[in-house]
Amino acid sequence: MLPWIELATAAAPQGDTLRLFRRGDEYSIRLGGGNELMNSRLGGSEEALATLALDRIATKGAPRVLIGGLGMGFTLRAMQAVAPHDAQLIVSEIVPDLVDWATAHMSAVFGTCLADPRVEIRTGDVGDEIRNASGAFDAILLDVDNGPDGLTRTDNDALYSNTGLRAARRALSVGGVLSIWSAAPDAAFTKRLSRCGFAVQEQLVRAGRTRRGPRHTIWTAVRDGP
């Protein structure tokens, strides 16, 4: 078996180290000593994050979408494949090095997707993007951590709190959707979404594209009413 080769490292916001590895045509991003955050062969659930959200806003013209977290670009590329030509796809990534890795080390994974005129990359905290917006987005897609049970940044907990969810609701247009990826189900979080004014659907999706791999959770939460 081919060995893993470390290609690059980056500082995560709270001082941890992100490490990029390659083995043949497979890539892995890991936290610290080896906890794998993402793998280029397991992007099925991240892709579902995009397709399930767009299904909910299919009737909206020129949709404006905020994607929290670039990662390996699974969610972005899935959104590009189904979004109309006049969509605006804004990606907020807090670690600038991950944007550099996309072209410097993972061009085989990303291809030319970042050159799409519909795409805008913003380096910064997606929480700030949400808090500073009012009715600005038709969809907000969050894949910034392990989900409500944060792993890489305790600050991400604010995204999933009552205050954070209400801010996300304000940032959405009426009928807009908040779509959230999680490594595991969370019944209490489903109830919290409902309390914060969303019509919620929770789905289990395979990590692999061939119905293999672990099951991940996707919440699609629609903003109803004013």
Rank of each mutant, 00 (worst) to 15 (best):
V99H: 06
R195H: 12
A133V: 06
H85I: 11
E129G: 01
T59E: 14
I130D: 00
G33H: 11
W181P: 00
D55W: 05
C113T: 11
P96C: 14
L42I: 06
D25C: 06
L193P: 02
T190P: 05
A167M: 07
V95Y: 07
I90H: 03
D224Y: 07
A83V: 01
A158I: 02
A11V: 09
S182E: 08
V144K: 02
T59C: 10
A171W: 03
A48D: 09
A136R: 03
A10C: 11
D128F: 06
G225A: 15
F198A: 04
D138Q: 05
S40Q: 10
T217K: 04
G175M: 10
G33P: 01
L141R: 00
T163N: 11
G225S: 15
R215C: 13
R41G: 10
T210D: 15
R170M: 09
G33D: 15
I90G: 02
D125R: 03
G164K: 04
L42F: 13
Q88C: 02
A53F: 03
D97M: 13
V119S: 05
K60M: 14
R41D: 13
E6N: 13
V109N: 04
M106V: 12
G24L: 12
A81G: 05
M79G: 00
G33S: 14
I180C: 03
T190H: 14
G147V: 09
S28D: 14
A207Y: 07
E93H: 03
R195M: 12
I180Y: 01
L193H: 08
E202R: 14
R153V: 02
R212K: 14
Q203C: 08
T103Y: 07
G175H: 07
R166N: 11
F189Y: 15
D186N: 15
T17G: 10
A115W: 03
T152F: 10
S134C: 13
